[in-house]
Design a binder for these strands. Structure first.
Length: 437
RNA sequence: GGAAGGGUGGCUGAGUGGUUAAAGGCACCUGACUCGAAAUCAGGAGUAGGAGCAAUCCUACCGUGGGUUCAAAUCCCACCCCUUCCGCCA
């Protein structure tokens, strides 16, 4: 959520920044300003009336104490109509506030001024490249071919169980998935100083709103229902990412500045409707309705937000470096960034069988956009204004998504004989150096 | 699902219609005392919104939403959550 005061005071700046997203949101600013003005106008009137009523009520109380009943009754009559007016104006304020909030929740975050202005992923600048495409003396197979031969995945039966877009890991496939999760969590907790959490996989509406998934993208997620009780539908949602529960851990709290920065990492499955998305329904595990991911979340003072983003990105890159997987880092241009983000880096890993890069991580600084939505603040203990409540920066990054990492790993380390070598960093977890039929 | 009890500030805990933003205690901040600290004493300190250049003032907030009243933490209704016991259950 954008700061209404910022919209009020730096209207042109906000309009200009929103326009860089190329989504037309800047057109809603006039409506916001109009509602805001209307709200304040009514507020002034109703608050004056309330002040009067409070004053008179106290006078009545005093008169009653002195047994001056007649005078008290006269004042009662006088204030009775004020009450009716207050009720009416209160309702008006409520209506206007509701409208204002509804529009504000639909407005995306302002891209940071350092982010390149562009329209699509074509415009994303490449930040760096690590390693190189694996050289193979044979034509690389896709992960579908490799894993079916090694009985690591069973696509047909996954479909039987849940339909297309779901994965059934079997044997070494299941063990590899588990090994990767363990490897990632160990890396981030022991080497990168994150606190591991294991959150609920279903969250309420407030969490979805807090991180920016609701209300605008409500059609993208799975809602659940308790048994046959249809009235419970829409109270809980399957998490699309661990970011949803974990970023909301301190929702509605005022943290101490000395508690920051907070680093959390979490493994969870992620559930996505992927309604209308290309690639769902095709074989393989590039785009699916459920995948595993280890997520990194940081809460930090605003001054450190971008420094922490670079470190977070480095933590995610470390995963691919340790696994010896070639990747590149791109920064998303203004037109390609997610709703809540002010700056995003994507990490794309090379998958030889696909002959393309796959996005395995997206690292974003949402600045105070999410903190504002979830009323997460911290009290300053240093600086010019001690004791002031400020919104922290909230960052998130995949460290990393598992399904595509699995694809890249299997396709990169495939051997001509159909087996898959396991990189040294993962061997202690999988307890083998090679998967064979 | 059934029964009982309960949700008040950072924590604890009073308050059952009228100077109550809300006693007391703990924790916290500032000052005094001290070489320093502890103890003691004095004072301060909630969150959000609005008006104002500012000092400051006003409004709302005692789980949430309604209602009664001139006036609600306090009375009434609905809902949510927590605790304990019973039932069911991984």
């Amino acid at each position: 959520m954008l700061d209404i005061k910022l919209i009020r005071e730096k209207t042109d700046f906000v309009r200009e920044r929103l326009a860089t997203r190329n989504a037309g949101d800047e057109k809603k600013i006039d409506e916001i300003l109009a509602l805001d003005e209307q709200r304040r106008k009514i507020l002034i009137e109703v608050e004056q009336l309330k002040a009067t009523r409070n004053r008179v009520s106290k006078e009545i109380g005093a008169l009653m104490g002195q047994k001056k009943t007649a005078e008290a009754e006269a004042k009662k009559v006088e204030t009775r109509q004020i009450g009716d007016k207050i009720t009416e104006l209160d309702k008006q304020v409520g209506d206007v506030e509701q409208k204002l909030e509804a529009v504000l929740l639909q407005i995306p975050n302002l891209p940071n001024e350092k982010v390149k202005i562009g329209k699509t992923s074509e415009d994303n600048p490449e930040v760096r490249v690590w390693g190189q495409k694996a050289e193979m003396s044979f034509k690389p197979k896709t992960h579908v071919e490799i894993t079916e031969k090694l009985k690591m995945l069973d696509f047909a039966r996954a479909t039987k169980i849940s339909g297309s877009g779901f994965i059934l890991y079997t044997g070494w496939g299941a063990r590899l998935e588990r090994a990767l999760i363990q490897f990632l969590l160990d890396l981030h907790t022991t080497e990168h100083n994150y606190t591991e959490v294991s959150p609920p996989f279903m969250v309420n509406r407030d969490c979805m709103i807090g991180v920016g998934q609701f209300p605008k993208f409500a059609d993208q997620y799975y809602g659940v229902q308790e048994g046959n009780d249809t009235s419970t539908f829409g109270k809980l949602f399957l998490i699309p990412t661990a970011e949803t529960p974990v970023a909301n851990i301190h929702r509605d709290e005022i943290l101490k500045e000395s508690q920051l920065p907070i680093y959390y990492c979490a493994y969870t499955p992620c559930f996505r409707g992927e309604a209308g998305a290309a690639g769902v329904g095709t074989r393989g595990m590039i785009r699916v309705h459920q995948f595993d991911k280890v997520e990194l979340i940081k809460i930090t003072v605003p001054e450190k937000g971008y420094e922490e983003l670079e470190k977070l990105l480095g933590n995610a890159e470390k995963v691919l470096q340790l696994l010896g997987l070639h990747y590149r880092v791109v920064q998303l241009c203004t037109g390609d960034m997610g709703f809540a983000s002010a700056m995003t880096y994507d990490i794309e890993v090379w998958a030889p069988g696909q002959n393309q890069y796959l996005e395995v991580s997206s690292c974003s600084n949402c600045e105070d956009f999410q903190a504002r939505r979830m009323a997460m603040r911290f009290k300053t203990e240093t600086g010019e204004k001690v004791g002031e409540n400020k919104f922290p920066h909230i960052l998130n990054g995949s460290g990393t998504a598992l399904a595509r990492l699995f694809v890249a790993l299997v396709e990169t380390y495939q051997q001509e004989d159909g087996s898959v070598k396991i990189p040294p960093a993962l061997q202690p977890y999988l307890k083998t150096d090679r998967i064979t039929a």
